[in-house]
Nucleic acid binder design. Structure first.
Lengths: 197, 197, 197, 197
DNA sequence: AATGAATGAGGGTTCATTCAT
DNA sequence: TATGAATGAACCCTCATTCAT
């Protein structure tokens, strides 16, 4: 008798919530506003989430996961041929409407989790997993002769993470049309600085 | 002198507000909570700020300025002797209680300004000024032979900004006692990658 | 037979509702909670009751009737031999789990009916019938020489009702294990005071 | 700078709440309804009570205390001259508009406390204190030769309490104009049954 | 300048009820 | 019959803001 896919519906709510957070800010994410955006009644939300906090968390985790999945997908196919840097860049940074939305939510998540221990903890775990994956990739690249071997893989991995995050967050303040050339140059510069010299 | 008192009180309010944002989150910054933290009555706040939005902005700008001032102070005394990297690092990153507070607020500011045009605009201006100052510093360093000349000063400046921001934000998730060694290594690596080779 | 099933189901709902009222209070009697206790879906309730008010009334009337039926059963077998006081007491007061439940609901009914005219009216009718029956019993007992004849049967009947109610309600606040000796002594004292002297 | 008496205002809220409970029932006691009855805004309530539960408790305790105080006042002036039974009766039972209100709330309290442990506990304490006072009074009356000495003071006290409660609660279902003669007869009969014979 | 009581809009949430399946 | 997703009114409560003192 199940007419609706429960998980699908939860996802829809999470995406709608993420869209509001990205577009109007966290304070604009009210149940009324959200129900309106989803074109349903307020009561519906309580069928899929026990309270609003869960919705906020689901929205943020959704955006975070989307970014992370693209990033992970890239790493897994390394060693990356140099001619695929283009795809790397496009996947890693907010260069289209969709990833813009996700990065905006992620920036909110970064600030929000500072004072929400449960969220901070899940972030920590995600961070560790990401770090480990990236360290593995660096080692692979070093063995392939693409990265210099003088530096610790762990440091290179952490610097890459910081580079991507710092660049992505700062990019959000730049007009969309200007972003691509900036980020391309900077990524190449970063990768160059990681290369054997 | 009245004006001094007035400005002094505004500053006190901003600092108290920033402390709440950093410690309990933006949602915990209520007028009642703020008045309580300042050990004064709610009504006092309206003598110094026309509404709560102004308080939020003042708090965020205060934290932002504090970080920026230290950064600017460093730049102005360049070319930096190599033996002052220690001070540079301590000044640029959240390595003590005070700067931790400021960086936490700044991260909130980064997210908040995404959907608050007025704030975004003032951020833009600050960003430009910061950028210009840093470009000047890079040129100076290049002329002094500390930085490689192969790269555009603008790109180096932007990469430095992104490096500092990305590193600082990610540092907030690391236990305070572990931060210093991490950031030292990474800063040296970054500066090394900027050097002539 | 459909009718039997239907009435049976209504009764089951009423008992489940009464159980919730007795155990968790009137405010805990929600449709969701009730459906959960009955291990059925919310929609089922509307097949047997037009709305929740009817359920509340059915639950309260059920408990009230249970108590009343035992009381009536006792009266009808009067004149009561002195050696059956034990049974009288056990039947009239909340001395086991089941009657405890019923009396708790009845106390809720007493309060609830104060502001629910329809319920108050049905209560009035039940009260009158109870009163008449008891007056008849008192007359019988007087004729049998068990009760003093100096007092009006009506007054004795009313005092008996008040005695039972006052005692039963106050008993609900006493630990179950202490109740029996208390109520035995008090009933004997009451009956003694009603006897010829 | 205190313009209002905080305790006075709390009392006003409690009385207004009690009036609603008595007149429209516990379910009609909403914050909107209460604010409306007090001719003030909803927000005012939160200045004097942390939440609605506290208001309900305050209202019920107020009504309970009013009844109790009259009862205690009577006991303290015992041994009671026989010609003051009139006052005793008027003070003990719901025979005017004011005490009617209080007894209606008390009946709600009796039912409500069944499933509200905190309230039940405070009721227990009040019950014990009441009992002790009454036992003391019974002893006094026995020494004055007004009550029979054959019975335990404790039993007499408990029977008196049950008599008053049972009678008062049942009285609430009787038209006000019929109550006085009923309760007078019954009280005299009760007191008579307590006398030496 | 400082106070804090008062306001009432708007927040999240719960609820009885309806209805397509 | 039975289901449970959907509805939206109404709940309690918090909040920024105002203003008489």
């Amino acid at each position: 008798m199940k007419k609706v896919d429960h998980d699908q519906r939860r996802l829809e709510v999470a995406i709608a919530a993420a869209t509001i957070i990205a577009g109007e800010g966290l304070e604009a994410l009210t149940t009324r506003n959200l129900a309106n955006a989803m074109d349903c009644s307020i009561g519906v939300l309580s069928h899929y989430f026990v309270n609003k906090d869960e919705i906020v968390i689901a929205a943020m985790n959704w955006a975070d996961s989307r970014i992370e999945e693209r990033f992970t997908g890239l790493i897994e196919q390394s060693p990356m041929p140099a001619d695929q840097y283009e795809g790397f860049i496009m996947s890693c940074f907010p260069l289209n409407e969709q990833s813009e939305l996700e990065w905006r939510v992620r920036l909110n998540l970064a600030a929000y989790s500072l004072t929400h221990p449960a969220l901070m903890q899940s972030q920590d775990e995600a961070r560790k997993a990401r770090f480990e994956r990236l360290v593995g990739m660096v080692v692979t690249q070093q063995q392939a002769g693409n990265f210099r071997t003088g530096a610790e893989p762990k440091m290179i991995a952490q610097m890459a993470i910081n580079f991507v995050m710092g660049t992505a967050y700062n990019l959000l303040a730049v007009p969309v049309e200007d972003r691509k050339s900036i980020v391309t140059d900077m990524t190449l510069a970063f990768l160059h600085s990681m290369e054997e010299n």
